[in-house]
Amino acid sequence: MSTLFINISLVSFMVVIALMITFSHRLFAIIIMSGAYSLISAAMFVNLDAVDVAFTEAAVGAGFSTVLFLAAMAWLPAEEKRHKALLILPLIICLVTGSLLMWAVAYLPAFGDPTSIVHQHVAPRYLAESYDKLHIPNVVTTVLASYRGFDTLGETIVIFTAGLGVLLILMGKTGRTHNPTTSNDTARDEDVNEK
């Protein structure tokens, strides 16, 4: 019961922060509030016994992305552009998408239902044999690194390639090919080769 009460108060906090983000125009305040939003959702994950997810959310959502947004904010004006006219088309799209999602929620299995399909496939086997076979108490680690090791390899490579793409975009302009000294060096090397 207390879990439910804490979750309801955390979610109402998140709704309030989301509304404040929507109505605020100062970018700095918006970034700090989205960090607070991530921190509260991390607290909610702890409350739901998903400590590993909470850890990631607190470190990446509340910590790192806030820092990245602040670094990006240095190139933006302090205030968001204000739209005076009410935008009808985006409002309609949001309402339609939102109501479609709410309609789909009605067909999902009940929250935390142990008899739902996703909990019937391989999860019981993992939970039953994980400790006897691997002697590792944290079942999240065994599923992530051993049973689903190939998926995690893909995940690591996704992080690597995503980082590589962002680095190429951000550092393309400042690459060494534009540096006059190195271009002179290569020219000199070519001269040497010709000789």
């Binding site: 590993d52 470190a59 790192f64 944290n138 999240v140 680690t141």
Partner: peptide, 15 residues
């Protein structure tokens, strides 16, 4: 310590 408690490579990397 990710084998025994919460955590692992992803979280440790960020920290």
């Amino acid at each position: 310590h990710g084998d025994f408690g919460p955590g692992g490579g992803f979280q440790a990397g960020v920290i």
